[in-house]
Nucleic acid binder design. Sequence first.
DNA 1: CATCGTGTCGCAAACGATTGCAGCGATGCT
DNA 2: AGCATCGCTGCAATCGTTTGCGACACGATG
Lengths: 346, 346
Amino acid sequence: MTTRATIADVARLAGVHAGTVSRALNPKTEGRVNRATVARVRRAAKQLGYTPNSIARGLRTSSSLTVGVVVPDLTNPIFPPMVRGIESALAPRGYSAVIVNTDGRDDLERLLVDSLLQRQVDGLIFATGHSEHAAAAEVFERGIKAVMVNRDARGIPFPAVVGDDAAGIRDVLDHLAALGHRRVVHLAGPASFSTGTIRAAAFVTRCAELGLEGRVVAAAAYSVDEGTRLTRGVLGDPADRPTAIVAGNDLLALGAYHALRAEGLRCPDDVSVVGFNDMPFAGDFQPPMTTVRVPHFDLGAEAARLLLGQLEAEATGVSPVRIVLPVHLVVRGSTAPPDQVHAAPG
Amino acid sequence: MTTRATIADVARLAGVHAGTVSRALNPKTEGRVNRATVARVRRAAKQLGYTPNSIARGLRTSSSLTVGVVVPDLTNPIFPPMVRGIESALAPRGYSAVIVNTDGRDDLERLLVDSLLQRQVDGLIFATGHSEHAAAAEVFERGIKAVMVNRDARGIPFPAVVGDDAAGIRDVLDHLAALGHRRVVHLAGPASFSTGTIRAAAFVTRCAELGLEGRVVAAAAYSVDEGTRLTRGVLGDPADRPTAIVAGNDLLALGAYHALRAEGLRCPDDVSVVGFNDMPFAGDFQPPMTTVRVPHFDLGAEAARLLLGQLEAEATGVSPVRIVLPVHLVVRGSTAPPDQVHAAPG
DNA sequence: CATCGTGTCGCAAACGATTGCAGCGATGCT
DNA sequence: AGCATCGCTGCAATCGTTTGCGACACGATG
């Protein structure tokens, strides 16, 4: 393991001072040194295979070219595309990302964020926004640059980039209404998440506009198990059983699938189900899931761009922009016209 | 953005020298300083909210407490659990991971590895092993510590931790044989991957042992599209159509699902399909997929532990250990006894 | 001919921690 | 009492860059 070439080695070989090498190799200061010298330095650097030690550079410039990405759980299939989007925007500017998983635990999140900060990340991207977001609040207090992605944090003026949740819900309701559904229930995500409240609100107003009989039950978490638990409850009284379920996300919808199957009901014949997010392989479920596609990759990329803008802006001004990206309904096999016999028993 | 407390601030407050603070706060050297002083330093540190600047420490100790993780594509659902396993083993030791995606491109991989090295990662974890693995070879040349996970790199003596591919294939073949299948084809992963060749080899030897009529066709990639392409070919002649398909991984199996459906064939009624990996939600596919579960989380965790061992060992000795973790078959809905009418048409 | 830019580059001080070495006082031993 | 020892802590070098400042040479200008 031969030790790497340093800037001093290059300087020696090129016959100049280390400071000059530094300037010659940095595009921003390259103009301040003689063209011939730059060439000589370049040649020497290449010959030695010199690459700057970014730790040393980071120490001097107090920046690490690293951003922290805080997600609840990388295993949730909506996050990998988002992370890739983030990295795709970061890489060209020389930044890279370090990812931490909070598993939804606030105390853990604060610990992890601390460790990220200790690592001198230049900024943070939160995919974990929710009300009472202690970690984000703390970060804001300390004047650290950050952005929210996918979800918003109530009361914390970080820029955010999110999908158009309301429009998505409107689209599914329109679709369901067109199919002939009248009695619909919404499996709402937790009220502590902006996605939960926004989608639920859009649900009730659109139901009203469409003259639909809409009911909403709230999930304690965005999970499969919660989806089946809630659905089981909703299915309780066959008399006023809904003909369609619009789930707060695909996981809840999957839970609905399970509950339906357990009750001996068929989807979409007996009840339609629609998800939200269009997670990978949603089209391969049983049945293929009708859901609304959220551009997670773009969400991530846009968030990263926003953060980079903040980082490279000299001004410390925090402009609480809110970028909302369009979503769109993809209709597959889990929605169909309601079965009139069962739907209107009375 | 009030500037963070440094070791000098703590030293001043505690009335000692910075060097003493450093020793007092480091568990390894804590014994070399008076207990009372340690307490005083601790108090001062806490009062100032001091956390060491890891960049500065890294410069001095020439270690970054960071490891690079090289995956083909984080979007492939087997990798998130692996990454989480890695992080779970890294975190307690103060290390963190930075992840890069190669998209299977060798040139890109070399670039990314270079950027990782420039970032002073202390070691590397490759989930991208294959024959002619240029990036890994280069890393080995330069004497950098690394381990392979999930896949092996032929000829490069890095430690590796993999699943027991051969045993897994044997289990599925036994299962299929017990069901009564005789004519089976294997959708083999690319020969450049150790998983591809090992599983294929196990397939032919077990078929021979079981007296099965086994055929293997090789995929150009581990992808859904390859799976349907290959399956379509296999289904060509109805006369000698196989009654079961054992796919090299779940993605290929999913592709088989698609091809079957396109041909108007039903799974498992007309032909059984089994996957490999048990990716998340494999049980929610249509039909629920019989597959072999690979402990990806544990694979990652074990690999990380191995790497940490290498890093903290003073000796530079590379012991090319190879840890193989057990896998096990999970039977779901995509396998059933063969339909005698179609299976033996002649 | 003296002066003033201008363009180049060297000097040296940071950045914030770690660590070998040496100094110091107190203690133990002869 | 003198000397070696030991426990503790200060000193200062060091890691590899970046960057403000000043020096120097050279051509132009009044």
